[in-house]
Amino acid sequence: MPPEVPQTRPQLQGDRTAATAEQKTLADLAARCLAGDAQAWEHLARTQHRRIYGICYRFTGSQSDAEDLAQEAFLKMYRNLASFDPEKGNFTTWLTTLTRNLLVDHYRRSRLERASDSLDEGYDGDDDGPTRAERLTDDSKTQEQHVSGLELRAQIQEALKQVSPDLREAVILRDLEDMDYKEIAEILGVPQGTVKSRISRGRGELARLLKRLEGQVM
């Protein structure tokens, strides 16, 4: 049996109104920043840095990388705030797109390093070594460790890190950031059909990676 299946998420009118009001507030803050209001900038950074750090951490799985990327995202936002146009889209989508572009750049930069690492692993000749999924669920760990929330979340995070990057970003935005398909399509620059497909495949890939863990939790 899988863990608790998420409840359905009907878009309530009240939620939509609150979200619109929040976006209006953010757009106003951005406008105040452009007018040179330092307090508005501080408020914007204070309210947004947690979410941006969260996206970076979920994507990279590394605290130090996430910290560097979040800092870079805010520096980029600070320099490019004038390019935010409230008529073209909401602030959250704009900032997430900016962060996602940085994540893609970071992924491309580190891809070569990862490629050389995997080559090294190959030369080590450890053909009988554990698979990715097996490494996630090391049998030497006790049942209690697996069941503890912290350890479990660390395992899920580790598995998420191994999901293909184009599927990973889609599920992060959908399932962890609660964005709708249209917003995700806008951020990723792909059609909504592609977004839906990536979300399904990303969820499926994660479930397969965590299959062994599932048996131990249940």
Partner: peptide, 14 residues
């Protein structure tokens, strides 16, 4: 079934 399980894991992470 796989998609539901994946979504469930992610909701746990969330």
């Amino acid at each position: 079934a796989e998609a539901k399980r994946g979504a469930a894991w992610l909701s746990m992470l969330k």
